[in-house]
């Protein structure tokens, strides 16, 4: 029986990349950790009660009173459990990954919506990114960027990028044919059609994609704790390795609170666009 050395080849490619793209990975790593540092330090720096007030205010403004009450109770609980700083670290990781995911994913989604060929190429790549078990690419990520927050962000990015690409592509493709024709019939250029007709009509769908990206990022950030990304993931990991049930539970609760907060607020953001 012949065995195809696919695993070996993958290993060789990764090793070759580690050797030859060293500088490139260094630069990428530096940029990511720079962005992360800015978010993290500004989130942690603010006195917790003030930060809670900001988060609750934001929830009130975007998602209404109920979500605001929930986040007031939730975040106070997180702070009282002593998880405030790690929760903010996690939030910084999420924000950084999602920001990069949106900056890269949105244009790819738009591009895929304009060209069937691009869509055909992008789709299997997205499938790959979403279904490949996270640990498989955690290893090369560590090889490229060493242990720490940067490979955590990269792994999160890989896992959470697909929804924004998919939903942007889908949203634009689902714009009713007549609306596209109308934009065309009045003399829109391709760009005007995209900016003034297609994107605004597709916005609720795109926002659903953004929401999904945020949720996936949050779930991945926990796993990223295993490679030293810090934050709540690290606490969960500690809970597991030390068989500390209480610690595991408390950090788990904090993750859930953060998740519900992010979900409700971003969902309301999408709905707001729709009603406007």
């Amino acid at each position: 029986m012949v065995e195809l050395p696919i695993g070996k080849s993958f290993e060789n490619i990764i090793n070759w990349m580690t050797d030859n793209f060293d500088t490139f990975f260094d630069i990428v790593g530096a940029v990511i950790s720079g962005v992360l540092f800015v978010f993290k330090s500004s989130l942690v720096m603010v006195y917790p009660p003030v930060m809670i007030a900001i988060l609750v205010g934001l929830a009130w403004w975007i998602a209404g009173r109920n979500v605001a009450i929930f986040s007031l109770i939730g975040f106070t609980l997180v702070a009282l459990m002593g998880f405030w700083e790690v929760t903010m670290e996690t939030l910084a990781l999420v924000i950084t990954s999602v920001a990069i995911a949106l900056i890269t994913g949105f244009p790819v989604g738009v591009w895929a919506s304009q060209s069937n060929a691009v869509e055909k190429i992008v789709r299997p790549i997205l499938d790959f990114m979403q279904t490949l078990p996270a640990f498989v690419y955690l290893i090369p990520a560590v090889l490229f960027f060493q242990l720490g927050e940067v490979p955590g962000v990269i792994a999160t990015l890989i896992f959470s990028l697909p929804p924004v690409v998919r939903f942007t592509n889908l949203g634009i493709r689902q714009v009713p044919e007549e609306i596209k024709e109308a934009a065309q019939a009045f003399g829109s250029t391709t760009r005007q059609m995209l900016v003034k007709a297609e994107l605004p009509v597709a916005m609720p769908t795109i926002m659903a994609g953004v929401n999904q990206t945020i949720m996936l990022a949050l779930s991945m950030v926990v796993i990223a704790g295993m490679i030293g990304a810090g934050g709540l993931g690290n606490e969960v990991l500690k809970g597991i390795t030390q068989l500390n049930i209480g610690l595991g539970f408390e950090s788990g609760i904090s993750i859930v609170i953060l998740a519900i907060y992010l979900d409700r607020v971003t969902q309301a953001l999408g709905a707001r666009k729709k009603n406007k």
């Binding site: 009713p176 007549e178 009045f186 003399g187 003034k196 007709a197």
Partner: peptide, 26 residues
């Protein structure tokens, strides 16, 4: 040449006047 559509093809995110001025705007 301008056109009127069967299912109206209005832009849902624009007001009545925003839709009406679309052709002029672009």
């Amino acid at each position: 040449v301008s056109m009127v559509f069967q299912h109206f093809a209005l832009l849902p995110h624009r007001s009545v006047i925003g839709n009406t001025e679309y052709g002029l705007e672009i």
